[in-house]
Design a binder for these strands. Structure first.
Lengths: 84, 84
DNA sequence: ACATTATGTAAATTATTATTAACATATAAG
DNA sequence: CTTATATGTTAATAATAATTTACATAATGT
């Protein structure tokens, strides 16, 4: 045994990249500055390496003037889905 | 010097307690079971000791069949408010 | 009185998110 | 070619969330 050396595909997806481009091609660095985290953190969140804290999630939605649910989507059924 | 031995009043408030009572007086333990965390974690989140992970927040909202924003409120202006 | 359930809270440990620093590639500008 | 910007990625460390175990009180029921 011993598996999962991989990150976390995760049940939570996000639309950060799209939203950044729809907001003047905002860079990861600028978004990071605006919400108070580093650009590496934005990159990690955007690529789904891990999920942001609830506060960071609220702040990101605020930057784009949308609801939290329009940035992050949680798949309630991931995990217990039919196999094929 | 040396302050803040206290938790974190936090910019994020929640209505978990109210929602639990409006859903058949659901106990902290049951809510915890339903979303996959312990009752102590629910107690800590409910009392504002710290914020839940984004996934836990989505799961809690799902249990009560409401949007995440109806359970957790983020005060965008906390921190930079007028002083009386 | 005794048992059960719900909740509060604390300490020690584990897991996860975030940080800084570093080095990489790609692109556009001059 | 050189410079600057944007992004990808990794390692080591720090900060925060969650866990288990434990003990406490209050309320309810028998």
């Amino acid at each position: 045994m011993m598996a999962e050396p991989v990150p976390k595909p995760g049940l939570i997806s996000n639309r950060i990249r799209t939203l950044r481009f729809h907001h003047g091609e905002m860079s990861q660095a600028e978004l990071g500055e605006r919400i108070g985290v580093t650009r590496q953190t934005i990159a990690a969140i955007e690529s789904g390496k891990y999920s942001p804290t609830l506060e960071a999630a609220f702040r990101i939605a605020d930057v784009f003037s949308v609801q939290l649910g329009e940035v992050f989507q949680w798949d309630a059924n991931a995990g217990n889905r039919a196999q094929t």
